[in-house]
Simulated assay, not measured.
Amino acid sequence: MGEAGAGSPGPGPGPGQRRRRKLVLHVDVNNTVVVADAVTGQGPRAALNAFLSAAAWGRRAPDGAWQWLSEAPSLRPPCPGAVSYSSAHGRDPRFADSPRGSRFRGALRRHLRLLAWPGPPHEGLSVCGEGGQRYHLVLPAFLRLLDELHRDGRRFAVVFRTFGTDLPRVLRALRCALQGQHPGFPALRGLPLPVDSSVGQIRCSEQEVVLCQGHTRLSTQDNARALYSFFSATEGLSGFQDHFDWWARNHFSCQGGKPLWIDPHDPDVHHICIDDNIRLDDSDTIVCPQVFSEPGGSCPRLAPTSELYGVCLVQTNLLEAIADEDYFLRCVRQCEENYEHYLASAGNQLQNGQ
């Protein structure tokens, strides 16, 4: 298939083929495409330790002692009643380096080796970690996703969505990569993917969600569809800081999470959010998915995470994202396949009057 600009229509569908939807990828930063945290000052080792503490499972014994229920890290609990170590003790930036988490030390060391930066340091694309070791700032799996979507002639855009302050650094790094400065991805040079460095904000309240970027200001009080249309029309790479205080005031539940608007009646766009804090438990997740139930409607309904998990919501497995350069590409392709099933199921329910 011939190549086309990332924001351009690309080649039209062949006879009998359905036009592929534009992908709008809403992507978290920390512990999704970047293994570091400028706000907390955590380098790659501390950030990876903190992730492992949330992927290690156990429970309290009757005498109060901690009992392990997992030997290997995983996103999902291994059995009913299991709780993550971080839920019981808080995220620990020294977890696998401590005696308590020593069983996960091998996973820590293995993935740090995979994160190591090859060759001379690059000021924008590599980051200095503990002990002076240089690491990838942006995961190679994410750069491969950009490369492969472009090679496949896809229409796509990436909107970074984070509570943190790392967006300018990440956008600068990606600009360097798109200039061909990454030793592992020289083919990214010249990819027609503009980088918008004007970081926007999304702020939430009981009355409205407000999006601001440059001279643009949109509010759900006027029309929630306007925000959906804004993100659907976005091009290239851009970023927004979401409203952490609102999430905290809503007890870290979906009610206060990052708003994501989805229109299953739109044949042209598929929105996908990728974030390590997406969880099936609506009382402990980071995205507030809002689905338009009617064509052209302006009042979306709050959808449960379970309805869209693996369809429009991807819980990042950081260890797989580090170890497998095809990870994000595989997640996106799986979501596209599941989205077709989701739309077919929704259509059947409408026909049956449900």
Rank of each mutant, 00 (worst) to 15 (best):
F244P: 02
G10A: 11
A82N: 14
R203N: 01
K22A: 15
Q315D: 03
T40E: 14
A61Q: 10
F142P: 03
A226R: 06
R172N: 09
S293G: 08
L308W: 07
L149C: 10
R19Y: 08
A47L: 04
H26E: 08
A4N: 01
Q334L: 12
S219F: 06
L25E: 08
P73A: 15
R155M: 12
A141I: 00
P118I: 13
Q221E: 12
A82Y: 13
T234H: 06
S253R: 02
A6T: 10
T220M: 09
N31T: 05
E208R: 15
V199M: 05
Q241Y: 04
H270V: 07
Q315C: 08
G16R: 12
F185S: 06
L171C: 07
G257M: 00
G7D: 08
P186H: 14
A55T: 15
W57T: 00
I274C: 09
R155P: 10
G164E: 00
I286Y: 01
E71H: 07
A323R: 05
E320D: 09
P62N: 02
R154C: 08
L188V: 09
L237C: 01
R169F: 09
L260G: 10
T316L: 03
L23H: 02
P194A: 11
A96V: 06
L25I: 11
L112R: 07
A303L: 05
